[in-house]
Amino acid sequence: MQVKLRVKRFDRERDREPYWAEYEVEAEATDRVLDLLHSVKWYQDGTLSFRRSCGHGICGSDAMLINGRNRLACKVLIKELGKRISVEPLRGFPVVKDLVVDQQAFFRKFESVQPYLVAEEPPPARERRQSPEARERFDDTTKCILCAACTTSCPSFWSNPNYLGPAAIVNAHRFLFDDRDAGQEARLQVLNQSDGVWRCRTIFNCVEACPRGIDITRAIGEVKKALLLRRT
């Protein structure tokens, strides 16, 4: 079938402002949006830029705004969208070129929550034991692929770019609720700052945007609760 693909484009070397480019692409209903973008790039217009690598929703390269929603281009099929498809870069990050955004600030926030296991005691000779229940406690937040779909769908982030954002909080949660970890205190301090977890207004956009199906609002709620318990 014939799909009309609109792409919001911008090349700072050439354009003063972003503009919409339109392409007619021959495609099958089961093709991915990524296939459409490739089809344009490879057979129509080589100047179109976007990131991608794995092609099946694991590497987190190709989150973008597709028909008004943040998704991975490689994980949404044309049959879910119909014959008119529009694609824009993620909101709230500087655009580098076309669909490529600058994610450096995003990664810096991720790093700021100390997303690594902090252990007090030297490890045992074998593995640390962890019950399946304790492991299950933080399973959901281990799934994050740092694609930034959640953070860039969040109105609190749009209005305050300093807000840590859901992705960083999800990654803090992954360690806060791991019973092997001893880095709670330092991490909670970061989360408790004015641009930390309290900026979340429970709007749920992030949950809808997450291509990994992480229940982000719940994770954020659990982090808030951990902070409240710590205060008392």
Partner: peptide
């Protein structure tokens, strides 16, 4: 190597008695 990964925090699936 696998034990080192666990020590670095890798969330392996676990047996009922808590091993990898």
């Amino acid at each position: 190597t696998v034990l080192e990964l666990e020590h670095w925090g890798l969330p392996f699936s676990r047996t009922p008695d808590g091993k990898i």
